[in-house]
Design a protein around this nucleic acid. Structure first.
Lengths: 191, 191
DNA sequence: GACTATGTGGACGCAGGCGTCCACTTAGCT
DNA sequence: AGCTAAGTGGACGCCTGCGTCCACATAGTC
């Protein structure tokens, strides 16, 4: 939707914009959304004014920076939907989503943000969740997904998964995979 | 262990100390360990100097403030150990611990803290974990606890559970209970 | 009631984040 | 090459949190 900019920027401005986005992606991913705007500017090698001129709010910057993740997230769910076995698809989605969110702390923050005055990507989230709902419906009917599963369960698990970001990076990846395994077990329907 | 203070304080100082601890408990519980020292001082109706004189570091203040939770946490596990059915005891521990940690954000922070220069309550944690290990061993042998369960799984789940604190208070409690339910299911041994 | 050691609040200086303003630079056009 | 509007970095003022210092207050003792 933001494929073409309304008006052309001067070439140096365009370069700066690109570098800002690049830095923002890197820092949002590793530090989360709390990273200071100035840190992004510094890493991009520009002054604060340049950053604020291009992206007046962190929200705007993040929306742009996460365009790729947003697409990746949707792609994961679509791929899960395309799998012949819906339960297998569901598990695959859980695993891959955990992986994606682990690599990108800021994206998780944005994906889960519901408090006001915070970066949010509500639009893309709603789309993705709609697809997950479809997948879940199928996995209940023709798979081993527990019948009382609700979308909010997934949000709870993602919210919880974000909590893992505080642990040290070395163990984080292991913890995330184990978490995904346990979550899948938790979603299996009762005996 | 810190039952009696080494030397008696002046009566007004004693009062202030009590009020500081009371405020610290309330604020740590609701805001977590990140609450500014000054906020605690303000709520207690004392100046910063008074607070710092009594508790030079947040670590010392927190250790004192959480003495009660520390005991409660141990008591929960002991009670779980005393139950005839170890699996039932294990589930009970999970539920109650989630509940305790939900009510007290700061306590969770301290309980899980492993990064340096942070409030930690390592001593009590190790004791509690030792008891949980015993309970888990029994629940594997004579219960439905999955055979590959490790203590780190519990830490992963508690770390994740802390993530729920970011959601709004109204839904938090529901989310926590649902989380506990799902976690127990996750820990059931395979078919 | 007077004395003194203990205890106290407010002020201080430091650090770091915020968003904006402004004098200088420079891309892009002629 | 010269012009000009777009673009820029650094400086600025504001805020909030930090831990410490010191002149004043007061509990406990005589």
């Amino acid at each position: 939707m933001t494929e073409q900019l309304p008006q052309k920027l001067r070439s140096d401005a365009e370069d700066n914009r690109d570098r800002i986005l690049e830095s923002a992606r890197a820092l949002f991913a590793s530090e989360g959304l709390t990273v200071p705007m100035r840190a992004i500017a510094r890493q991009a090698g520009v002054g604060p004014a340049t950053l604020y001129r291009r992206f007046p709010t962190k929200q705007l910057l993040a929306t742009e920076a996460f365009a790729e993740q947003t697409r990746a997230c949707q792609a994961i769910v679509d791929e899960g939907l395309a799998m012949p076995d819906p339960w297998q698809g569901f598990c695959w989605v859980i695993e891959r989503i955990c992986e994606l969110h682990l690599q990108n702390r800021g994206f998780t923050d944005a994906f889960l943000a519901t408090y006001p005055d915070t970066v949010d990507i509500a639009e893309s989230r709603e789309l993705t969740l709609k697809s997950v709902a479809t997948l879940a419906r199928r996995a209940k009917a023709r798979g081993r997904l527990r019948k009382d599963f609700e979308l909010s369960d997934l949000m709870i698990m993602l919210t919880a998964h974000r909590g893992l970001h505080v642990s040290d990076p070395a163990t984080r990846s292991t913890a995330s995979r184990r978490f995904a395994t346990l979550v899948m077990q938790a979603f299996v329907s009762g005996p």
